[in-house]
Write a protein that binds this DNA or RNA. Structure first.
Lengths: 107, 107
DNA sequence: TGATTCTATGGTACTAAGTACTAGATTGCA
DNA sequence: TGCAATCTAGTACTTAGTACCATAGAATCA
């Protein structure tokens, strides 16, 4: 089940590596690289407080453990889940990584 | 080359999944889970401005493309590399992920 | 030659994320 | 009974991150 889940990102990884190889061979330029890379990116969707909590509970971890994975304080996880604060750009990216690939993707 | 690099994290991923399975089977409690998870985490080291730039150039991407991967603005990448701002907790975590697993790990 | 685009720097100003501290209520375990 | 973990809650502070702006070098193409 995790195999089909990882399929898309695997394709993207292969695309990026192919593009990187072509770049290093001098066959494509940076401008092309940019096009490749941006089309490879998975969009990060802003998560609601309850989505964040559901995500954490899906992984069977406490707020403290979850905080350790994301390199933030446990207090901030609580604030996210109660809607007192909203994840910043990098934080939202981390959350979407966990959502799509599981906690082990950010271990 | 990338195989030996991924070895440690693969072991950790396996450990986490084993612990998760044991938890779902009711054989270990959350307290034990916590011990498992925290020992699985790779510590994030604060990166210097020039380390951040070296990391980006290692991946052959512009500041703009790099920013898209990390879900921040290109201006912030510039500030990181010039030492005007320092990456926050979640941002540092993302950078260490790129450092250890490459850009495709955050695609 | 000029025109255009990408790249990166530099600055200013503002919003709010993230941190650190505290305390309280709850649960479960010894 | 006490001890520890979990989560909530609040306060106050620092600064990361954003949104603008203008500038300049390098590369590409007419």
């Amino acid at each position: 089940m995790s195999r089909s889940k990882a399929y898309k990102s695997d394709v993207k990884a292969a695309l990026h590596e192919t593009a990187t190889d072509l770049y290093e061979a001098g066959l494509i330029d940076k401008k092309t690289m940019r096009g490749f890379d941006e089309s490879c990116l998975t969009p990060v969707a802003p998560l609601t407080p309850r989505e964040i909590r559901a995500l954490r509970e899906r992984e069977h971890v406490s707020q403290t453990v979850f905080a350790n994975y994301l390199n933030v304080t446990p207090n901030l996880i609580s604030k996210w889940e109660r809607g007192e604060k909203k994840p910043s750009g990098p934080a939202a990216k981390l959350l979407s990584l966990v959502e799509k690939h599981g906690l082990t993707a950010v271990a």
